[in-house]
């Protein structure tokens, strides 16, 4: 099977006792996640990301719609052997030490004692907690807890990982660690469902992304495609006027002062433009990737959603 997750018309509404209104947290979501990809599940706070993940794990139940995870229904005991979950700001039994908590989770997978010890030590090593493994989690920092969270999500060599905002609230160094870890997971052929509102992480690691806003899927596609066709700003000096005119024809935004130009061209036209300028004696002073980033897309999408 090609798809790790297939979501069809998945809807979840919560009834608010306070306001008496129904909140639609996830609204007819249809989405496929391919095997082996790192999928970025984006959306602002309150978009419905966590709600979606909890439905996929069988922790809460959809109001309507279906989902299939590795071919199983959510919450199926068999699929739970193959997947793992790192919740948003995870909490663990604080009375346990790092070692004990991982040992506990490993036992839940039925891993035999001898293997368990090896596995737990390996994981502690991997996430860099070997020195603190006998400390109670009560005395762990937030970053250390996040690493325990990652370790517990790896304990069963999962085919599919759900990571809910894995970098939120972490310092930049920890960010990098987590990013490296995710990249490694992809290299090992695992599928990662990564929810985030932290675009910088997603941008560097994800194959495909979707954008969710107020429960609705706004966009989905490969990251390359989404960023493709975007403009690049080129700055150059001593550009001949005829060349400027030529370039201007392809440009959305161009102007010149004494042979120094600044133009904005489509990405597909960058090479051609640069060559033309250089071959005619011009000097490129800067090629600046267009300001359109994932962030632009994100903001644009969310804003469009708001307007419409």
């Amino acid at each position: 099977m090609e798809n790790a997750i297939e979501i069809r018309d998945l809807t979840k509404s919560f009834h608010s006792v306070l306001t008496g209104e129904d909140v639609i947290a996830v609204d007819h979501l249809t989405l496929d996640i391919h095997r082996g990809e790192i999928f970025g599940f984006l959306g602002p706070n309150g978009a419905g990301k966590t709600t979606t993940i909890k439905m996929l794990l069988g922790l809460i139940f959809p109001t309507s719609g279906t989902a299939s995870i590795l071919g199983y229904p959510p919450g199926d005991i068999e699929v739970k052997r193959k997947i793992s979950y790192l919740p948003e700001s995870p909490y663990f039994y604080e009375h346990l030490s790092g070692y004990e908590v991982l040992d506990f989770y490993a036992t839940l997978f039925g891993i035999p004692a001898a293997e368990r010890k090896k596995k737990v030590d390996e994981l502690l090593d991997l996430v860099g907690l070997s020195d603190n493994k006998h400390k109670r989690l009560r005395h762990y920092s937030k970053g250390m807890l996040q690493r325990i969270g990652l370790a517990q999500a790896l304990i069963n060599d999962p085919d599919l990982l759900f990571l809910d905002e894995p970098t939120s609230g972490l310092d930049p160094i920890a960010h990098l660690d987590i990013r490296d870890m995710i990249l490694r997971l992809r290299d090992e052929g695992r599928t990662v469902f990564l929810s985030s509102h932290q675009l910088s992480d997603v941008e560097m690691v994800c194959d495909r992304v979707s954008i969710l806003d107020r429960g609705k899927l706004m966009r989905v596609g490969s990251l390359k495609e989404m960023l493709a066709g975007k403009s690049v700003e080129i700055r150059a000096e001593r550009v001949r006027d005829d060349i400027f005119e030529k370039v201007k024809a392809h440009s959305s935004d161009a102007f010149t002062v004494d042979g120094a130009i600044r133009v904005r061209v489509e990405q597909s036209f960058v090479n051609e433009t640069v060559q033309m300028i250089m071959q005619t004696g011009g000097e490129i002073t800067a090629v600046i990737p267009g300001k359109r980033t994932l962030e632009d897309i994100f903001i644009e999408t969310v804003r469009e959603g708001t307007v419409s």
């Binding site: 909890k54 794990l57 069988g58 922790l59 005991i77 068999e78 739970k80 052997r81 997947i83 793992s84 979950y85 919740p87 995870p90 909490y91 663990f92 039994y93 989770y105 839940l108 997978f109 039925g110 969270g149 517990q152 069963n156 759900f162």
Partner: peptide
Amino acid sequence: QRTIYTILSKPVK
């Protein structure tokens, strides 16, 4: 304390 998330997402009925 949300510890239940990591337990019920393991193979625990």
